[in-house]
Write a protein that binds this DNA or RNA. Structure first.
Length: 315
DNA sequence: GCGTCCAGGTCTACC
DNA sequence: GGTAGACCTGGACGC
């Protein structure tokens, strides 16, 4: 990686870089193999057909936040490309996200007050690019988390790519072209995808020049972006909400159990059938901030468990 | 060791 | 427009 360029992004306060990029629940930002050490994140993203190395760290404070982004590339990026990469970083790091209205909810909502106090300055994040988000959505379907991780790790190990920069090695997700050119049988055998192999290959083939990239989706209204994603085979309501660049509310069986305990004090008899009702109740309570409640609550389960006396981490 | 069951959804056929 | 039933298969569980 011979070429680098650096940008320093201003963010809307409060912005806690460490909590945002390295969430307590262990959610990664760009790839499961990204490296996070002492406040510095080394990860990668794909820009066109080029893999870029990213080194990010906070240079400001929570109340005066700045994020230094060093971008490593094999070939020198044209200034228009640099501009696009910077826009994508700002979008995915949610540097313009204003949390004040959500934090105001804490004045009247006990649950929000609690999580906001625990995770002050944590922002939601967006996916740097589309295909990895779709891989996550597809592999989370109808599988325990352990098996989902197995499928994702095998996809990355067998079909992904390495990028080495700043003395770090990061292995990145396969490109849509790579998956589109792999047979369904090979995907089933090497990544243990089962019936999901056909869907993932179809999606990979659909992500051509006609289909909007993540930044284009982000400029659409949430409804438009979701509608576009729902056109992809194997992407339904839950997956679209998980992938869309605007804040979605991707309630699945696991999170439905947790929200049901928090809202009604018990796990529903049939969680899958209860998803719609819990979603309605949450949206009635938090309105357009439901997605933020989702991210804050799921990243504060250990503390919330102590508060309510029920182990929310067991689901 | 072996059999059975089911998972952090989606699609389709059928009513 | 609403809803059973099928979908791959690894891993947990009971015996």
């Amino acid at each position: 990686m011979a070429e680098t360029f650096t940008v320093e992004l201003n963010a809307t306060a409060p912005y806690n870089f460490d909590l945002t990029i390295h969430k307590p629940a262990g959610w990664y930002w760009a790839t499961p193999t990204e490296v996070y050490e002492e406040g510095i994140l080394w990860c990668a993203t794909r820009f066109g057909d080029q893999l870029l190395g990213l080194k990010l760290n906070a240079t400001g404070t929570i109340e005066k936040p700045k994020i230094k982004c060093q971008i490593y590339s094999k070939n020198k990026l044209a200034s228009s490309c640099r501009k696009e990469v910077t826009t994508a970083l700002k979008r995915a790091l949610k540097t313009d996200e204003d949390l004040s209205e959500f934090y105001d909810l804490g004045q009247s909502d006990d649950l929000i007050r609690h999580v906001v106090k625990d995770l002050y300055g944590m922002h939601t994040v967006g996916w740097p690019e589309l295909f990895p988000a779709l891989i996550l959505a597809i592999t989370l379907q109808m599988a325990p988390l352990k098996r989902s991780n197995q499928m994702m790790n095998l996809l990355i190990a067998n079909f992904g790519e390495d990028i080495i920069f700043d003395n770090k090695k990061v292995r990145y997700w396969p490109s849509p072209q790579k998956i589109a050119n792999t047979s369904v049988e090979e995907l089933m055998e090497k990544a243990k995808l089962g019936y999901r192999a056909k869907n993932l290959k179809t999606i990979a083939a659909t992500l051509n020049d006609e289909f909007p990239v993540m930044d284009e989706l982000s400029r659409m209204s949430p409804d438009q972006a979701k509608k576009k994603l729902l056109l992809l085979r194997g992407i339904g309501e839950y997956s679209a909400e998980l992938v869309m660049p605007q804040m979605g509310f991707p309630l699945d069986v696991w999170s439905t159990k947790i929200f049901s305990v928090l809202l009604y004090g018990k796990v529903p008899e049939n969680p899958r059938d209860a998803i719609a009702a819990i979603k309605n109740a949450s949206e009635k309570r938090w309105g357009r901030w439901s997605g933020y409640a989702f991210v804050y609550i799921l990243n504060d389960l250990t503390n919330l468990s102590k508060k309510i006396g029920v182990d929310l981490t067991k689901f």
